[in-house]
Design a protein around this nucleic acid. Structure first.
Ligand SMILES: [Mn+2]
Ligand SMILES: [Mn+2]
Ligand SMILES: [Zn+2]
Ligand SMILES: [Zn+2]
Lengths: 142, 142
DNA sequence: AACTACATTATAATTGTTCTAAACTGTTGA
DNA sequence: TCAACAGTTTAGAACAATTATAATGTAGTT
């Protein structure tokens, strides 16, 4: 369990003021055993469940974007009209369960290292993401 | 250059009526040398450029979804708030140029075959997609 | 304490997409 | 051939996710 002062230091070091709202969001995001894959709505729900006072939706968006910009969150590309975020900021890939809309981390051993043999002239690789969509056997494709 | 009657047959075989609008969209989508990666907006623009009479945006959406359902188009997952489609329906991966927002096909030899060594119990793999984001060297990450 | 820049908030605006329901058209078979 | 019907198109409304706005609040500095 991470102490509040650690969050305060981390925020200050990033040039973000440690406000009440940001600290609460830190708790919800980072005070957990396992990786949290979430949409803004998931996060807002987690917040309101664990909190008496409320945080404005705009602040949730602002904070998630600030944390992403500072590298404390990753955004995951899923074919959907909503964004997913990830507290696991290491390079890793995902399974996406189409039945439950849940992301599952791929671990080092789950997938062989991606070896890209071509490069685009004048361009640098910014990220490589593998998304493996899964669903129950008795599910219609796509 | 594909003849109009071929499109008519293809549509009829799929249980889709060969309407004026669908045939025009077929022309724009499939009467080209190279793969077309597009957003609905790109397609609507291409249509209005090549056409005197106009096609309703709702029809463009309807048709693209119908074609996707019939397997004539693929939808590509990009971290963005808009959907991308692909006339290349083979299994393949993509580079995404963040400077221009253009997709580039990965060919067979560009990337080693993805080898997934883990499976999710009770779930079947529906798709495996690799997205390699690229940008100019002097670009800020993500 | 006062100042200032940064942050929060409610709410409006924007954007991509889907829905609706009325008008239209391709197909069928009497 | 043509009426009937199901499928299709359409404009515009509705919707959902996200971003912008601008007023109010607050953390950090002096
Ligand atoms: Mn989609
Ligand atoms: Mn959207
Ligand atoms: Zn993850
Ligand atoms: Zn492609």
């Amino acid at each position: 369990m991470i102490k509040n002062t650690e969050f305060i230091d981390k925020l200050r070091l990033s040039g973000l003021r440690p406000t009440k709202q940001r600290l609460k969001i830190c708790e919800v995001l980072f005070n957990r055993e396992k990786t949290f894959h979430f949409t803004i709505n998931d996060l807002a729900k987690s917040i309101s469940e664990q909190l008496n006072e409320k945080i404005s939706l705009a602040t949730v968006y602002n904070t998630v974007h600030a944390f992403k910009d500072k590298g404390y969150l990753k955004e995951i590309s899923i074919n959907s009209d909503k964004s997913y975020f990830d507290t696991n900021i290491s390079n890793h890939h995902h399974f996406f369960d189409e039945d439950t809309n849940q992301l599952i981390d791929c671990h080092e051993d789950d997938i062989e290292k991606i070896n890209i043999k071509r490069n685009i002239t004048g361009k640098k690789i910014k990220s490589v993401e593998v998304l493996i969509k899964v669903a129950s056997d008795n599910q219609n494709q796509n």
